[in-house]
Design a protein around this nucleic acid. Structure first.
Length: 811
DNA sequence: GAGCACTGC
């Protein structure tokens, strides 16, 4: 099987769509994980040696013609739009670590080739469906502060909207006088930058790269003149001149904790709202308060808000923002004087505009199963071969399944059947695709099929949003997905197979029509389809709300009941989260945020893990360092590789023997991080030897570094560098620190040999991935309580019942 | 005896 092992991933994924008419719109999406290392540039830019850069160079995969440069062309000309940028320089973000200007050896070459590239791209941009709407969008936003924009897949909204708006008069940095809490007035500059939020990091980065190309500007911190940057966790790349910034939703929320009025921005564009992650709901709530309030923190300078969605469910959003303008009388005269209702209504309709842009998709024919299907793996097998026998190549098949288990089962079946296939037919290449799959295996999906071969990609819903595979003309949709749902009453997460929504079904189907007309085989009947929910259940109805509530409290939202939720979670869920926050002292008795709560809110951790970190800091530096190592493991994917075969399992047991600790998973993680960090020769080889995920460990080290740095800033850790001298600390203070956050996540052994939760007396089994699996100890503490086939405790350590008693009494 | 997908100065 041909395998492109060291492919240049980002460029690979982007270069394919560039040859098809969907160009810019399909550029943003890539595989779901950033390649951090080994991302070195392989191709040289024309002529001059370039300084080292943090990020990928701005250039396309295709070797761009490098024209000889004329001297007069080479000067970066001062366009009118660059004038405001000078004043922006003064108010540029301070103290960002990443915007150190890099020396540019040949600025002239750089800028000219960038401009030429941009002018080529301009021809493509003009063909995007949204391009003709530029004036309309600009006009509407000059008059109104809020725009709701439905832009179907392929409309080009994510790349074009910021470019339409960046040179608008309202987008300039504006001097303003901002009243301070102490009654004084501060002169400052407000606005000048557009933020575009994305749910995923790769999307933020690749969109920034694309828009920088289109605007003919260097990307991010590569040049002080760069106008386009991005900001995601562990990787911020902006310059003093950044005017368009792509960031993750979480990053914007984090910025809002420090700058509640978003004074650096003239506009916030919230993209992919239809996905309805919990961060989008928080963002829209905060933004509604901001735009419909008096803007006092911005010195009266307006903030434009564009909310973008790929599906047409705009009515609820329209109602949502209208409600904001109605319920908070404000505006020009400043005083809320309770005047006539109709005045407010006028105000609200004038403030919001709606825009609908058609997408560009090829037609996709839908074929339903004539009768209900009980075994969708078997049904998928039949459809795959039906397609393969009937349909011409090229035309790859993308099958949506529910999880790794079904993917692997079907992979086996297809391979078995393919053996007996008519040899005159094209071959079949089966490619599994799920998040837990190692990176190299994921990348195989993107390599073009060998001659006379049809790719059959068996994917989880990773392929619905996070990963775009080119070449697909046939989609097989089982109509199901695994969904995580937090059960407030039981305090556990369940992960169950559920029917997808209509909009997810449409999204899956759309994957067949990106490059050519396609077909979508639905493994359910049309009447089943009609019974599906219209949209995905918003995450805010499915998750533990404690983190969201803590964020709101930290932002000064005292009255949760009056917070503008796009979808209001049930009272019970809110109360449960409040109780949980009270239990870890993040709130005081009146429900306001406490000192502890404020500290926790700023950490990139769940409130419980944040609480554990603070508790550990009271036990001394060593305990804190150890707990940081463990928390780092808990906040990334599983660090131990799954062992599929019996042989591998044995090998894993032996390889990991020196890492395992009988105290449980927490101490095992600690010894793993220590061993990995102590390996200075070849960490990758070390990880492979121990069947530890190198990818996961790299993330662990990123988190560890971030947490250590935050602890130093908060004076919880000393500033010296002697942090890696390990002494063998006692496990007791470590586990007791964990109990400060997880006192209610405990279970004791009962006479029949099972474990029962200390609070609630429910049966819980130790997850098979735990080092304590099959072991009997007095009591256990666990990080996660998950229901799949039965109730499992994951992330388990042995504790003593009297510690549990103390920790519970302490609450 | 088992692991949907994302994400955070």
């Amino acid at each position: 099987m041909p395998e492109k092992v060291h492919t240049h991933f980002g460029a690979e994924a982007e270069s394919v769509p560039q040859q098809i008419p969907l160009t810019a719109a399909s550029a943003p999406e890539e595989i779901g994980r950033k390649k951090k290392r080994g991302n070195k540039r392989k191709r040289d830019e024309p002529a001059e040696p370039q300084p080292p850069r943090d990020h990928e160079p701005i250039q396309s995969k295709k070797p761009a013609p490098a024209p000889p440069l004329l001297e007069e062309e080479a000067k970066p000309e001062a366009k009118p739009e660059e004038v405001p940028q000078r004043s922006l320089n003064k108010t540029a973000p301070k103290g960002k670590p990443n915007n150190k200007p890099k020396p540019l050896t040949d600025t002239k070459t750089n800028f000219t080739s960038l401009r030429e590239k941009a002018s080529i791209l301009y021809e493509q941009r003009k063909k995007l469906p949204i391009f003709g709407h530029a004036d309309e969008i600009r006009t509407k936003l000059r008059e109104q502060d809020v725009m709701l924009l439905v832009g179907e897949t392929g409309s080009g909204k994510s790349t074009q909207i910021p470019q339409f708006l960046v040179n608008e008069f309202w987008c300039r940095p504006t001097p303003a006088k901002v009243p301070q809490k102490d009654g004084s007035v501060k002169s400052m500059t407000v606005g000048g930058c557009i933020a575009i939020t994305q749910p995923r990091r790769v999307a933020a980065i690749s969109l920034a790269r694309r828009v920088a190309e289109e605007m003919g500007t260097p990307l991010g911190s590569s040049s002080p003149a760069s106008k386009v940057g991005y900001s995601v966790r562990f990787d911020t790349s902006t310059s003093p001149s950044t005017r368009v910034k792509f960031l993750t939703e979480g990053m914007l929320l984090q910025e809002m904790l420090h700058d509640p009025w978003l004074t650096r921005y003239s506009a916030i564009v919230v993209d992919e709202v239809h996905e309805r992650g919990v961060n989008v709901d928080l963002t829209t709530g905060f933004l509604r308060n901001l735009v419909s309030g008096k803007r006092e923190g911005r010195g009266g300078v307006p903030l434009k808000v564009v909310v973008m969605s790929a599906t047409a469910d705009m009515e609820s959003l329209l109602g949502f923002f209208q409600e904001g303008f109605k319920s908070q009388p404000q505006l020009q005269n400043g005083e809320a004087n309770g005047t006539a209702e109709e005045q407010k209504d006028e105000g609200s309709s004038k403030q919001i505009s709606v825009c609908h842009i058609k997408g560009r998709q090829f037609p996709v024919q839908t074929i339903y199963s004539p009768e209900p299907v009980h075994d969708y793996v078997d049904a998928a097998l039949k459809v795959i071969f039906q397609i393969h026998y009937k349909e011409p190549t090229p035309g790859d098949v993308l099958v949506f399944l529910t999880g790794q288990e079904t993917v692997e089962a079907l992979e086996k079946l297809v391979n078995e059947y393919a053996v007996g296939m008519d040899p005159s037919l094209p071959r079949i290449q089966v490619l599994p695709l799920f998040a837990a799959l190692p990176q190299v295996a994921q990348q195989r999906v993107f390599a073009p099929a060998p001659p006379r071969t049809r790719k059959v990609i068996l994917a989880t819903n990773i392929a619905e949003t996070s990963v775009t595979v080119s070449g697909v003309r046939y989609v097989v949709d089982c109509g199901k997905a695994k969904v995580k749902q937090f059960r407030t009453r039981l305090g556990l997460d369940s992960l169950l197979v559920k029917p997808i929504s209509k909009s997810a079904a449409i999204q899956r189907k759309g994957r067949a029509g990106r490059e050519a007309p396609g077909k979508c085989y639905r493994l359910y009947t049309e009447s089943d389809y009609l019974t599906l929910d219209e949209t995905n259940t918003p995450e805010i109805l499915r998750c533990d709300l404690s983190q969201a509530l803590l964020n709101m409290k930290a932002r000064g939202v005292d009255d949760i009941v009056r917070f503008p939720f796009l979808t209001r979670p049930p009272r019970e869920a809110l109360e449960k989260a409040l109780l949980q926050l009270l239990g870890i002292d993040a709130l005081d008795e009146s429900g306001g945020i406490s000192e502890v709560g404020l500290k926790i809110a700023k950490l990139p951790l769940t409130p419980t893990l944040g609480r554990v970190l603070l508790a550990a800091s009271e036990q001394g530096t060593e305990c804190l360092l150890d707990v940081i190592d463990i928390i780092s493991c808990l906040s990334v994917e599983n660090i131990f590789l799954n062992t599929t075969s019996e042989e591998k399992k044995e090998a894993a047991e032996i390889a990991r023997r020196d890492l395992y600790r009988r105290e449980g998973d927490h101490l095992t993680m600690l010894s793993t991080v220590r061993a990995y960090a102590g390996e200075n020769v070849d960490r990758k080889a070390w990880a492979e030897r121990h069947l530890v995920s190198h990818r996961a460990m790299q993330s662990v080290m990123d988190v560890r570094k971030q947490l250590r740095s935050q602890c130093r800033q908060a004076k919880l850790l000393p500033r010296d560098d002697r942090l890696d001298q390990h002494f063998d600390t006692s496990p007791v203070p470590i586990l007791q620190s964990f109990l400060c956050g997880f006192a209610t996540n405990t279970a004791r052994l009962v006479p029949d040999g099972s474990y029962r939760t200390v609070v609630g007396n429910q049966t819980v089994a130790i997850h098979p991935s735990s080092v304590l699996f099959g072991k009997k100890v007095e009591a256990i503490m666990y990080n996660e309580f998950v229901f799949t086939n039965r109730s499992y405790a994951r992330g388990v350590s042995a504790v003593q019942m009297d510690w549990v008693g103390e920790a519970l009494a302490g609450q």
